[in-house]
Every structure is written in structure tokens, then in C-alpha cells.
Design a protein around this nucleic acid. Structure first.
Length: 812
RNA sequence: GCGGGGUUGCCGGAGCGGUCAAACGGGACGGACUCAAGAUCCGUUGGCUUAGUGCCUACACAGGUUCGAAUCCUGUACCCCGCACCA
């Protein structure tokens, strides 16, 4: 289909770039640094599809652009190579996940190379390699020392398909993030956690400073961290103080019962002998309810037999165990005000608990007996002792302070990092009967995953591997055993971008000076799905590493960009089962990868979804082929003022468009510029055109650069500058005038028939009107005269009607 | 329920106070070239009207601000996406 042999051109330039190592960088440069990063991929066995190509092309264009602008650009690639699919494949084929992983990586590299991505491959990071995960373990130990890595028994999310626990961030609507059909079960296990909550407030407040992060991502993080201001109020139960968290102390006089979470660790303290049976039955019932039904779940509970003393009224109110109270939010217990909270209302109705109105709506009265739902609006306090008649909203602060204290609460939970799987970073911990939990000494790192283990679907093969498990206690030298859980793979991605700065360091996690030079990331590109996972974890890691003195900045990435999805031609998500997967190899073969890059980038804003389209790719191919044939017989000489205007304007506008990631706009301007090239062109202007093209279609641009004897690689050429003085909007007006004249002629030709067209132009405008161009455009024989031309043919005296920018026309 | 973002011509999608009946691409249609097809080139693609004009209706809907709105404000409807029994 393509006339040009793109495969040849692509290979030629990819080989040269690689041979000359032109994209490799170091910190010694005097140039200003720029760090472009794409989220590193999990190397899946199925390889890359065109959507990945789109993703990486966004970064590649930017890296090329900044490089040409004279920045020292760090643009690395690596692999998030721990994870379940490889382990599952190993189980299935009785092999080792390492083999699957490394094969997949090889394939990825080959594919990415074929996309023409300008990575510095010398900095490649693969997190399944001991030289990388050693530092995962090292960080873990630093956290352990500071008490930020800790072990606790807790209700945790368990996916039976993954055969492991999951972090909160990996549970979506009660289901496993990897298995949409699998409901997560709650188990009570002792697990390792990282104390993300230590930084909850900084993670929350820091979002305001991330000016160049998308609003929706920041909103999602705010939502996830869930900072809320409220009051802690103590209720006395059986002589002990039990604090609760509330945002509505104004309703305190309306509390008619309390609800403690069914998962509350101290629930048993509240259950009396008489009620034990009932509570146990209730707990058993909840356990068998699947997570998914929770949305529709009716509020249920059981009376514990205990009573709490309302600090405002001194009244004793019953304490229930309930299924709608979250154990680890606030205090795991709530005060219930059925008159003014819908959940409490439903619960009270079900169990026949008193409903006491304490807020009266301004317009009418409430009757507790007759209410069909809770009143949650604003009103006037009643039945509230000294606070009667005040506005409930205004009373919040005063009542909160009187009966409790102001506190801030977060939804964010500590990060559960233990995984009961093999293919992850081993947790560097040893259990000794005498000394308890002991960390592996730093000099013994890494704790390496063994190669010779047998995989079964039953359990983590490390458990049965005595060579791995049996060890000596570093503290007392006695017999001890290693932790067999590994870490969540999101641990690796929390800091991999730091390792790129000093990927081969064997002595330390990284050279502080190098990281100081490159970090933070200037542009980070990746999917929106990482909003509340990776993008929070990595922010947390940065803050921790800063606090132990390794870093001197607060946030990993200054600017974040979430690309849209590339769907199949049918508008559906690409998947093997739908048969709509588009592979970069196929595309390259048909259109050349440069056409594909150009097409994908020109389909609209980069953050929107787009459908692959063979037709569209053909359109881009046509454009590239036209460019190539233009260069076959371009006349290099002097540019007209108009050409200079066009080139300079395009350079100016495209520079801004690329800077702001509006590649689609830049490509349109490139097309317009090309359409306007004609006649002689100065070498400098022609070179500018190739440079503008080079970021989008690098192989073709290199080929053209060579053809016009450009110096070195266009990939390293200096980004064109523009001269504002050469930009003269008059030229655009003239173009518009010519267009208008064409339209006028065609309009007249619609009404009258004629073969010869005469155009009469004011003398100083004659040079803008080319008879041959006009003839071609209107498909008739056109003659152009100056109005003062004595020789002109003008039988009807039309010439006199010509105006500036508006020639007169005669057709016969 | 809370939060984020949308709604533009046949389609995708620009435009973010006048120069807009609205970029660019795709599709469709007409023409040139050709024995023919393809490729390429030119044109049309809201309606009426006209020797190159003028007018009407248009950027989800309804109002408002303004000399002037697809663009700003308010409300309504619909759509997409996150989070969600968070007290």
C-alpha cells in the first residue's frame, strides 16, 4: 500500500540511533535537565498493542521536543516485572516465573524499539532483579526502623483467585482489581503494613501545590484520603471511656443509641453474658454475607447488653453491634441520632429504638412518631438544654468544644503490603522464637528468591522451601525462619523512577547528587487508573525518603498527564476475545510507524479516548507520502516573504502547542504549513519544517534530513526559533482574499455559464493572484489583469468595480 | 449520596467574547485526469436567495450579562468517570 519502504527507513534509523547512543544522557551536562517519564509497564506475555504505542508516543514526542530545545533529557524505560500472571503461567507450565517474565521483557523491548521511542536504554530497570529489589528491602528496613513498617492482626481483603490478601486500593466495589468477577473476602490475619497514614495530612494538603496535575486525579486522591474535620466525644460505657468521632455534635441531645462495628477489636468487652448468643449469631450471619451485597444490605445489628452515658444529657442509651459501621474509620463506633441521620433512622425503626427530634425545621414542626425519614436539613435546636433555639449549624463548634475536642479524621488506611505469593520482593524479616521479629541485617540484603522451587496452585512455594525458610537468627544465632510473604508489587513502582537516575549503583540505593539533579519528574504520563494507588504510594515513598535525608523535594512529579484509551475500530476496548486488537507490527507494515504515530496523535485531545481507524491511518500515510515526494524535487533557494511568514508562524504556534501537549493542534498546523509550501524555499526554512516533523515522525524526518544534507541527526538538531518580525498577518489576509475570489468565481459560474474568466485586480495586488493557480482552482481558463492595464480585455467595464482585497470578475 | 468531566455540523474533533455557518481529519457527493479502475488534483457537504449578494435557522435546553456569546454567568435535562453504609 505504501509507496515508501518504511520498514527499511525505520530499521536504518533505529540502528543508527542505537549505535551512536544518541539518547543516552548523564548528569555532567551543562544543559538544564528535563525528566520525561511514562509509567513503566507490566511485561505481559501478550505484548504491546497500539494503545501502548499511543501512550509511549506522547512521551517520546515530548522528550524529543525538549531534547531539541536544548534540555538534557532523561527519558528511561523499565519493567514492573513482579506480579501474578507470570507466577500463574509458571504454575500452569511447571516452570519459573522468571523465564516468562524475561521472555516478555525481551519482546517488549523489541516492540518499543520498533516504535522509534527515544529511550536511554542504558538505564533500564527491571524490578524482578535482585539488584533492584534489594533496595525495596532496604527501604522496608528503614521503614521498619522508624516504625512505619509494622505487623498487625487485622481484618484484611482476601482474593481467592489471587490466593493472597490485597490492599484497600486494590479492591474495587468489593471485588479484586485483577479479577472483576471475584468478590473479596474478609479474613483476620496478621500482616505487614506500611504506615501511609503518618503522611495522610501532607498527602492531602500537598495536592494543592500540584498545579499541573489533572483536577480529577487530585479530587480522587482527596476523596480517598478523606480528610474530615469533626469532634471526638467520649461516652462512658461500663465505667470506661469510649471515644467516638462525629461531625455533628449539634445532634448530641438526640442520641438514642450507639452502634459499634461488628469488626471492632474490642467488641467483646461490650457484650454481656445475656446477649452473647444473640451477638454471636449476628456476627456469624454477617460473615456469610458477601461483600457485594453491601450496597443493598439492610442495616442490621444486635444489642450488646451494654449502655452508654450520653455526656450531654446523662441518659443511658443502648449499644448495638451493627453491620453498617466501618471498624477502622474514626473510632469504629458511632453515636446514633435517628431523627437526623438516615442510616440511624432505618436502624432505629427496625429495632424499635426511640427517635428524638433535636432540630426543628424552620418552616414546620417534626413529629418523631410520624417521620418517614430522617430530617437532615438546617433548623433550630430543640430538646437540647441550654442550646435550644440556636441554629444547629452555628451551634456545631460550640457544642463540639463543650462536649468533646476538635479532631481531624482520615479515610486513608495503612497500606497492607504482605502478599502470600512467590513472585514479589521477599520481606526481609526473620522470626526467632527467642527474639521475635528480627530484621535481616542490611549487609545480608538482598534476600533472594530461589530459582529451584516447585510451583503449585496450593500455596506460596516459599513456605515449603526449607532452604529459604530455615535460617539463623541474626540476633541470637539460634534457629529461626524467614518471612515467606512477599511485598505488593506497588512497592516497586513507588520508587522505580528514582533508580533510573542511577540505575547501576551497587553500593547504595542511588547517588543523592544524581537524584537531586534529575528529580523530580517534569512530566509523568500514565493511566488514570493509578489515581488512588500508585500515585498515592509513590508520593508517600518520596515523603518518607525525604524524611530519612535521601531527598530534598516533596513530590515525585511536577506535572501529570493521563492519556486517553485507544479502542478498537468498533469503538470497544481492545481485547483478544473481541478480535479487535491492533498490533503495532501490523500497523507498521501497512502504514509505517510514523504514519501511525501521526494518526494517533492527531485524533483530538490526548486525554480523550479514540478509536483506531485504518482509514484514518491511511490519511496520515497520504500526508507522509506527499511530504516525501515534495522533497524529491524541492527547489532550495530563497524563501518568499510569504513562505518565511508561514514557517515562522508555524514554528511559533507549534512550539506552544507541543509544550502544552496539544499535539493534535500542532499536527494540523504542520499540515497547513506543508500545504502552503511552494516555489523556492530557503534551506533554513526547509530544515525548520523537517525539525517540526521530526518529533512526530522521527524516522521519516531523519531520512529527509539526510536527503537535504542536514548536519548529524535531526533528532539532535536545534529546535527552530522564530522571528516575530517575519510573521506578517497581511499574508494570511491576502490568502483569505484569494480564497474569497475563488469562491466568488465559482459562485458566479454556478449562475452563469462561461469558459473564460477575467479577474481585475488593483495594481499593487496583482502579484498575489496567479492566473494558473486560479485556473486550476476553478477549472476554467482564468486571466488576471491589473485594473490600469491598457491592454486588458474588459468588454463590460467591470474593472472599475475592483476594490482593495476584492478584485472584480467578468465571465463569458 | 459526595466528587470530577462532558453535551458543537454525516462522524471524530478544534474553537473558549467580535474576524464563526464554525479549523483539521474521515466519510459522502460532483468534477478534472484515465480506455477504465486506483492514485492524484479541484470543488460541494444547514436552508432560501444572488453575477460574486442578502437573509433565516444553528454549537443540549431555558434564562441572564454584553453594543456583540458556541465562547462568560445562572438554572434544567441527559451522558461519562471516580469514591461510597466514612458517622
Amino acid at each position: 500500500m505504501a509507496k515508501t519502504d518504511f520498514a527499511r527507513i525505520e530499521k536504518k534509523w533505529q540502528d543508527r540511533w542505537e549505535k551512536e547512543k544518541i539518547f543516552e544522557v548523564d548528569e555532567k551536562s551543562k544543559k538544564k535537565k528535563f525528566y520525561v517519564l511514562e509509567m513503566y509497564p507490566y511485561p505481559s506475555a501478550s505484548g504491546l498493542h497500539i494503545g501502548h504505542a499511543f501512550n509511549y508516543t506522547i512521551g517520546d514526542v515530548y522528550a524529543r521536543f525538549k531534547r531539541m530545545q536544548g534540555f538534557n533529557v532523561l527519558y528511561p524505560m523499565g519493567y514492573d516485572s513482579f506480579g501474578l500472571p507470570a507466577e500463574n503461567a509458571a504454575i500452569k507450565h511447571k516452570s519459573h516465573p522468571k523465564k516468562f517474565t524475561e521472555d516478555a521483557i525481551k519482546n517488549y523491548i523489541k516492540q518499543q524499539r520498533n516504535l522509534g521511542l527515544s529511550y536511554d536504554w542504558s538505564r533500564k530497570v527491571e524490578c524482578h532483579r535482585p539488584d533492584f529489589y534489594k533496595w525495596d528491602q532496604w527501604i522496608f528496613l528503614q521503614m521498619f526502623k522508624k516504625g512505619l513498617a509494622y505487623r498487625k492482626a487485622a481484618p484484611v481483603n482476601w482474593c481467592r483467585k489471587c490466593n493472597t490478601v490485597l490492599a484497600n486500593e486494590q479492591v474495587r466495589e468489593g471485588r479484586c482489581y485483577l479479577h472483576e468477577d471475584t468478590e473479596v473476602e474478609i479474613k483476620h490475619l496478621e500482616q505487614w503494613f506500611l504506615k501511609t497514614t503518618k503522611y495522610a495530612d501532607e498527602l492531602y494538603e500537598g495536592l494543592d501545590k500540584l498545579k499541573d496535575w489533572p483536577e480529577d486525579i487530585k479530587a480522587m486522591q482527596r476523596n480517598w484520603i478523606g480528610k474530615s474535620h469533626g469532634y471526638e466525644i467520649e461516652f462512658e460505657i461500663n465505667g470506661k471511656k469510649w471515644p467516638i468521632f462525629t461531625t455533628r455534635p449539634d445532634t448530641l441531645y438526640g442520641v438514642t443509641f450507639m452502634v459499634v462495628s461488628a469488626q471492632h477489636p474490642r467488641l467483646h468487652e461490650l457484650v454481656t453474658k445475656e446477649q452473647k448468643k444473640e451477638v454471636d449469631a449476628f456476627l456469624k450471619k454477617i460473615k456469610s454475607t458477601s461483600q457485594k451485597d453491601i450496597e443493598e444490605l439492610e442495616k442490621e445489628g444486635a444489642f450488646t447488653g451494654s449502655y452508654a452515658v450520653n455526656p450531654a444529657t446523662g441518659d443511658k442509651v443502648p449499644v448495638y453491634a451493627g453491620n453498617f459501621v466501618v471498624a477502622d474509620y474514626g473510632a469504629g463506633m458511632v453515636m446514633a441520632v435517628p431523627a437526623h441521620d438516615q442510616r440511624d433512622f432505618e436502624f432505629a425503626k427496625k429495632y424499635g429504638i426511640a427517635i428524638k427530634v433535636v432540630i426543628k425545621p424552620f418552616e414546620y414542626d417534626l413529629n418523631a412518631e410520624k417521620m418517614s425519614r430522617a430530617f437532615t436539613g438546617e433548623g433550630e435546636l430543640v430538646n437540647s438544654g441550654e442550646f435550644n433555639f440556636s441554629n444547629n449549624k452555628e451551634a456545631i463548634e460550640e457544642m463540639g468544644k463543650k462536649f468533646g475536642k476538635k479532631v481531624v479524621n482520615f479515610k486513608l488506611r495503612d497500606w497492607l503490603v504482605s502478599r502470600q505469593r512467590f513472585w514479589g520482593t521477599p520481606i526481609p524479616i526473620i522470626y526467632c522464637d527467642k527474639c521475635g521479629v528480627v530484621s535481616v541485617p542490611e549487609k545480608e540484603l538482598p534476600v533472594v528468591l530461589p530459582d529451584d522451587v516447585k510451583f503449585t496452585s496450593e500455596r506460596n512455594p516459599l513456605i515449603g522451601d526449607d532452604k529459604f525458610v530455615k535460617t539463623k537468627c541474626p540476633s541470637c544465632g539460634g534457629n529461626a525462619r524467614r518471612e515467606t510473604d512477599t511485598m505488593d508489587t506497588f512497592v516497586n513502582s513507588s520508587w522505580y523512577f528514582l533508580r533510573y537516575c542511577d540505575a547501576k549503583n551497587e553500593k547504595e540505593i542511588f547517588d543523592k547528587k544524581k537524584v537531586k539533579y534529575w528529580m523530580p519528574v517534569d512530566l509523568y504520563i500514565g493511566g488514570r487508573e493509578h489515581a488512588t494507588g500508585h500515585l498515592i504510594y509513590s508520593r508517600f515513598y518520596i515523603k518518607f525518603l525525604r524524611d530519612i535525608g535521601l531527598l530534598d523535594f516533596d513530590e515525585p512529579a511536577m506535572r501529570l498527564f493521563n492519556q486517553g484509551m485507544v479502542q478498537g475500530e468498533d469503538g470497544q476496548k481492545m481485547s483478544k476475545s473481541k478480535g479487535n486488537v491492533v498490533l503495532p507490527e501490523t500497523v507498521s507494515e501497512k502504514y509505517g510507524i510514523d504514519s501511525a504515530r501521526l494518526f494517533l496523535l492527531s485524533l483530538g485531545g490526548l486525554d480523550g479516548d479514540r478509536n483506531w481507524s485504518d482509514r484514518g491511518a491511511e490519511g496520515s500515510l497520504r500526508f507522509i507520502e506527499k511530504i516525501m515526494s515534495y522533497f524529491d524535487n524541492v527547489k532550495i533557494g530563497r524563501s518568499s516573504a510569504k513562505t518565511e511568514h508561514r514557517v515562522n508562524k508555524a514554528v511559533r504556534d507549534m512550539t506552544l502547542d507541543i509544550e502544552t501537549l496539544r499535539y493534535n493542534m500542532a499536527i494540523i498546523k504542520l499540515r497547513e504549513l506543508f500545504e502552503g509550501l511552494g516555489g523556492e524555499i530557503a534551506r533554513k526554512d526547509l530544515e525548520s519544517f523537517v525539525k517540526l516533523l521530526a518529533v512526530f515522525a522521527p524516522h521519516v524526518a531523519e531520512e529527509l534530513w539526510e536527503k537535504i544534507d542536514g548536519k548529524g541527526f535531526v533528532s539532535l538538531a536545534e529546535w527552530p526559533s522564530w522571528d516575530e518580525k517575519k510573521i506578517n498577518e497581511e499574508f494570511d489576509k491576502i490568502d483569505a482574499a484569494v480564497e474569497k475570489t475563488v469562491a466568488d468565481i465559482l459562485n458566479i459560474l454556478k449562475i452563469v455559464s462561461g469558459e473564460r474568466v477575467y479577474v481585475y485586480v488593483l495594481p499593487h495586488e496583482v502579484k498575489f493572484y496567479s492566473a494558473s493557480d486560479l485556473s486550476k482552482r476553478v477549472g476554467k481558463n482564468v486571466k488576471v489583469f491589473a485594473v490600469n492595464d491598457k491592454e486588458k480585455y474588459d468588454p463590460q467595464g467591470k474593472a472599475g468595480k475592483a476594490k482593495p482585497g476584492r478584485p472584480s470578475i467578468f465571465v463569458e
